[in-house]
């Protein structure tokens, strides 16, 4: 195995897997990243939650009831993951997409036909967007039907309603970007609702022009929707999401059957 083993000044040794792991994790570099040991003790499990900036949003201990799959159906979590999928695929699509009247549709064809994994990314962005609208709606229903909106969670419910509308507008602004017949006319009809903002005589034309930038859906509309879609709305949604998650913890975790009931 070791050809010149007998001539070496030390005894060669093939390291075992645990030894490699120990070498990698018990040194100053690793320890500067992760300030806890392998999470098989309560102490390390608690440290893992506390020393990670993302996990720190969550408590160290959670109620058993809030982990029941048939209580939450994981809908909020799924909606959040879809938001992440949409962020990642969306950023990738931005490398090939230009929000210009005469180029957007060509870009879409390029993404669908000649970019490596382009079709996969675009399909995923589209399907995840639809799934997120459905997921957020079902999440709202779940929260309502289990009483999760009630005191002390009223404020977080309101944030959730705002997030539902943010989801609608994110999806709708993205709908225009392919610049095909489906998107052009759906957005024409949708944004025409602006003309009915009461009082119509004053606000109608104003709302239309603020929304579209021109009387008809055009290049200006595309840029406006694009900007809302990639910057303004995702930022707003991210801020609301942060409050939403933080509030879950501040309101004592997920709702559950912890109070006294009148009957049963």
């Amino acid at each position: 195995m070791f050809p010149f083993a007998d001539r070496l000044p030390f005894k060669p040794h093939r390291p075992t897997v645990p030894e490699v792991i120990e070498f990698l994790t018990k040194n100053r570099v690793w320890r500067s990243f992760f300030r806890h040991g392998y999470p098989d003790t309560k102490r390390n499990q608690a440290l893992l939650m506390q020393t990670n900036v993302f996990l720190h949003l969550f408590p160290v201990k959670v109620r058993v009831h809030s982990l029941k799959a048939t209580y939450t159906w994981g809908l909020g979590l799924i909606s959040f993951y879809l938001f992440l999928i949409l962020t990642i695929t969306g950023v990738l699509l931005m490398f090939y997409y230009v929000p210009a009247e005469d180029r957007a549709y060509q870009n879409m064809l390029t993404i669908m036909t000649s970019v490596n994994y382009g079709a996969l990314m675009r399909n995923m962005h589209r399907w995840a967007a639809h799934a997120m609208v459905l997921g957020v709606f079902l999440h709202m229903c779940r929260v309502f039907y289990t009483g999760g909106h009630k005191e002390p969670r009223e404020f977080n419910w309101a944030i959730g309603v705002l997030l539902l509308f943010a989801t609608f507008f994110l999806s709708f602004t993205g709908y225009l970007l392919p610049w095909d017949q489906l998107s052009y006319w759906a957005v024409t009809v949708g944004s025409s609702l602006g003309q009915y903002v009461p009082p119509e005589e004053i606000m109608g034309k104003f709302s239309i022009l603020i929304l579209r930038g021109t009387p008809e859906v055009s290049q200006s509309t595309l840029v406006r929707f694009y900007t809302f879609h990639i910057v303004a709305l995702p930022l707003a949604a991210a801020v609301l999401l942060t409050i939403h998650f933080w509030r879950i913890r501040k309101d004592g975790g997920l709702s559950g059957p912890y109070g006294k009931r009148e009957e049963e």
Binding site: M124, W127, A131, Q181, L182, S183
Partner: peptide, 16 residues
């Protein structure tokens, strides 16, 4: 999501 994206293409109609 990956499965859906592999089996079904997102719609793209003719140009606006």
């Amino acid at each position: 999501m990956t499965f859906c994206s592999v089996v079904a293409n997102a719609p793209l109609k003719e140009i606006a």
